[in-house]
Amino acid sequence: MIVGDRKSLAEILDMIKDCQNILITGCKGCVTVCNVGGLKEVQILALSLKIARKKEGRPITIEENLLERQCDPEYIAELADVVHNYDAVLSMACGVGPQFLAEAYPAQKFFPAINTKFFGGATGHGVWEERCAGCGTCVIHNYDGLCPVSRCSKSLMNGPCGGSAGGLCEISKDVVCIWDMIVKKKMEQGRLEDLLRVMPAKDWSTSRDGGPRKSIREELSQ
């Protein structure tokens, strides 16, 4: 899923400082699963903003909404009748949400309440970790299911580098060296010789280096 963190209240309050009446819209997709932009988070943000504005002596009216997904125009269309009733709209979806909203309703102001961070999964309650960098050419089969593109600080195809010590990456004692894990797993499975093969430089044109990406599936397009 796409994982994000909510922006600070100070930043959000600054975005809506001139507004008296806003809509906060959440998304039932990834941000609901990672507990950052679902119904409960919409309610909590609305209350926090109302408290802040009451304290300032400038109460604000906030309506709450939750869309099935903010990355599909058919759900964005559900706001058509109400979207212009507000001074601005705060989206609690990933970065896709505010953009789809802004494209559908050019006359309205949309603000992101979430900092979108990475593609990942939950490794424990309240803990999410990056597992995919969306490079466009998956290579995890070469590394026994451990992705060096997203999980090595340098995205090395042939590792580890000299910065690996005690199973940790030199950038932080909180970052595991994925190459240490790859080597250990290969040893456990008796396939260490796999690593003698020098992997060629990766073609990054399928990643962000190739510019904004698009996926078209003819069988589905109408």
Binding site: K40, Q43, I44, L47, S48, K50, I51, K54
Partner: peptide
């Protein structure tokens, strides 16, 4: 108890 209940009381 939820964060919502505590904030709602304050609000």
């Amino acid at each position: 108890v939820d964060i919502f209940h505590l904030l709602k009381a304050i609000e």
